[in-house]
Amino acid sequence: MSAPILTVARLAKRFGGVQAVDDISFLVQPGELLGIIGPNGSGKTTLVNLISGFIRPDSGTVRYRDREITGCMPYKISQLGLARTFQMVRPFYHLPAFKNMIIPLASPRVKQLSGGKYGDRDAVAKDLLEEVGFERDSAVINKPAGALPHGYLKRLELAKCLALRPDLIILDELFSGLSLAEVAGILPIIEKLKTEGKTILMIEHRLRELFRIADRVIVLNFGQKIADGRPEQVMQGDEVRKAYLGTEGEG
């Protein structure tokens, strides 16, 4: 097996009296699609924030390829090729949808990857938006992001993340709040990213859809990792059933 692209070792974070993330360790191999699931409040988003640099851990380390990124500023981490989306969509509300794309396209990473030149950013922005399911040259891409429906905002969030041409993509509940049809529209995009060799880390509540594409799943509960393995394996475990499915009834 090749060297892991992401190494999380004994990561911990406490907020006041709550141990949000409690001694979590795992590896992600290049090209892998890893799902992270767990009941609400189990520490999934905190884990993403710790990896992407938005929160500093109390202890533990995060390594991206052979580089330690624990406590690095978020923009430094994004520049290395680890990009994320936000669960609560974070568009630039006042800017038109396709102008939203200019901001990641203006980052130093994109300049570096395209050989010192930015090229035609507007065209690239439109290409990317088309890739995630915006109708090209429609009125939608010129609308202020604040006026877009939720489904489009989620797609925009994904497109902004892809604009950085990342190697490791962290999708924080990309499917939340989307209809079955909308999810069915985005799934092939993720599968395509996977065939392109991207490594993907997906935080999800929509287990049925996640299990269709995930290679491996990690289950969190009260900030601890309680299971790690192939999707169908993981769901057999008693602890997982009790913690997650027993109370939620979804599956």
């Binding site: 994004s78 901001i103 980052s107 130093p108 994109v110 993340c161 604009a163």
Partner: peptide
Amino acid sequence: RSVMSAGI
């Protein structure tokens, strides 16, 4: 935060 996330 979103701008930071865009590597800027």
